[in-house]
């Protein structure tokens, strides 16, 4: 399914994500990595000092979609795979991999690269490579 190339709104949306990361660093000294923010709230090692702020950050994140829908009067276009087992496996791999690798698209891809972290640059190159490979196999070899 084709999607429109949206350079301007994507650049602006990205800038908002950048502002969010700067706010979090300036106010709390924290990196705006979503996998880190979320996984710290989960057992077995819940980060107690972070618990309250983590929940508030997530509340803000979850509030974006209803606010957007009310303000624009429409639900944004979303095309998600309807293959339930595939989505469950994808979720498990994303959760497991982001904790094992200490970060995801935001922590490594945006914040890590912005800090000039060599580890994050290596992680970003790695997950980009396997993601490109996965989509290639999924769409062009399996034909899904």
């Amino acid at each position: 399914m084709e999607t429109d190339f949206t350079p301007l709104t994507s650049l602006l949306g990205g800038a908002l994500i950048g502002i969010s990361a700067v706010i979090l660093l300036a106010s709390h000294g924290r990196i705006a990595g979503i996998s880190g923010i979320v996984s710290r709230l989960l057992p077995p090692s819940i980060d107690r000092p972070w618990l309250m702020q983590g929940i508030i950050f997530l509340a803000g994140l979850l509030f974006a979609a209803p606010l957007w829908t009310v303000a624009s009067g429409a639900v944004p276009l979303q095309l998600v795979s309807e293959n339930a087992p595939l989505m469950i496996i994808a979720g498990l791999l994303v959760g497991f991999g982001s904790v094992l690798g200490n970060g995801c698209t935001s922590g490594h891809g945006v914040c890590g690269i912005s800090r000039g972290s060599a580890r994050s640059i290596a992680a970003t190159a790695t997950f980009m490579a396997t993601a490109f490979g996965t989509v290639f196999i999924l769409r062009h070899i399996l034909g899904g």
Binding site: A90, L100, T130
Partner: peptide
């Protein structure tokens, strides 16, 4: 772990098109 984790994450990201931020959003 960094590389294995990132590689695993990338496979899941490619399969579902979701990473943690967008999925929660």
């Amino acid at each position: 772990k960094l590389i294995a984790g990132a590689a695993t994450f990338g496979i899941g990201w490619g399969l579902g098109g979701f990473c943690p931020g967008p999925a929660l959003t």
